[in-house]
Nucleic acid binder design. Sequence first.
DNA 1: AAGTGGTCTAGACCACTCT
DNA 2: GAGTGGTCTAGACCACTTG
Lengths: 259, 259
Amino acid sequence: MPTSPVRFTAKTAAPQAGSTLAGPSFSPLYAQIKGLLIASLQGGEWKAGEAIPSELDLAGRFGVSQGTVRKAIDEMASENLLVRRQGKGTFVATHAEQKVQYRFLRLVPDEGSTSLERQLLDCKRMRAPAAIAKQLQMRAGEQMVEVRRLLKAAGRPVVLDDIWLPGQLFKGLTTERLNQYRGPFYGLFEAEFGVHMIRAQEKIRALAADAEVAELLQVPVGAPLLSVERLSFTYGDRPVELRRGLYHTESHFYRNELN
Amino acid sequence: MPTSPVRFTAKTAAPQAGSTLAGPSFSPLYAQIKGLLIASLQGGEWKAGEAIPSELDLAGRFGVSQGTVRKAIDEMASENLLVRRQGKGTFVATHAEQKVQYRFLRLVPDEGSTSLERQLLDCKRMRAPAAIAKQLQMRAGEQMVEVRRLLKAAGRPVVLDDIWLPGQLFKGLTTERLNQYRGPFYGLFEAEFGVHMIRAQEKIRALAADAEVAELLQVPVGAPLLSVERLSFTYGDRPVELRRGLYHTESHFYRNELN
DNA sequence: AAGTGGTCTAGACCACTCT
DNA sequence: GAGTGGTCTAGACCACTTG
């Protein structure tokens, strides 16, 4: 039986007198379907890597045509929320078990394709400093987790990451859990805490290495480094991770595609 | 009358014996339409900023349904080749007369939104050095144009750009032409030389300012700078511009969105 | 052979812009 | 009101995967 035949079109709604100014005056059906699908993802109805119901199935549930469901899924696929596989089905996107490890990492070696080794340096719980709390939309002093780690290529340190996470969302996160898990942190976050990183913004600057950083990255003090500040979001544009990476760009570079 | 009723489907083509290995075994109609549209853009049939024919019109010409043309245009719009405007038509994308000046420039001020002033430092013709020629798929020693310029925010230099262009494509390019033109270079390139920049790749590193650069950007020698090397492409993945920008990231940063 | 996503059509109607 | 892009439907058939 249909779980929720939609059909609450904005156009059918009672016209508001004098609605001349902006506002979402019209919301197409497929956009509403998309909203319902995102709500299901957010609610954990389908987990990372799993298949969602077929297009015909969903069309039946929502009481719309296949084409309408298709358009909703198309948009979600282009936003990397879902992955289509012809003949097999449509799957919830995941950072684990993905062709490209580290979906968000834009660092590329000058030559070859070295895989990166992780080295966890620190993981502790702390009270959120105001500057970080603000970006994560938390209150200053709230519980948070701080992680520091290195990424190495062929034994040489290339990236020093500081990571801050809201304590509320990542309750059982410990050094051990981080060390046990194979693959990128974001895979662990999905599997263990149900937190999907959907998109992120990065702010990139150049800065000079101070003494502490220089030792960790094995570069001279004052060496120029790339500072990459990343704010990551889950469903509903909710910020859930702040990360500050320092990249040593002598034999690697940050790659970006412009369209 | 229909100019060219398509209908050369790959599936109808003679099946190749033992075609088990890769290869574009199937090319949908809309992809072929897209190819024809791109060829028209490339051939200058519709110029930057102009409207292309309506969907129904194109459907008639090509002998396909509106939906098929629609899908071709949808893809091209998502690649920023075309811009749709409901009620008005579909237009050839342009770098000039655009909401955002500098479509490819990811530099953002820490606060406010200062507009940037250009200052042309140099523009000369030269023979292509091997390293640059290679990236532009030219032969070493071929004629090329080299431009150097500054971008300033509130009078303070922020970006030093070196730009290399194939001499063949930019025959009448002079210092004067560059100085006369209002708006981004890419707008000039479209209007005067018919060269559209469609997409680009950037390689970003951190490096220390040498004496020459330090003076131009008004920073101390050794100051950390962002080095942004950009290779830009026209239709058909043809590289037509190489650019090396040095960004002073003290009150600006490079912004990137990850999906 | 059955099930899934992918393509293509034809037609109806809606939202927006301009004259 | 005429023309444009935008939505939605219903149905046919194709390509790919799996039993």
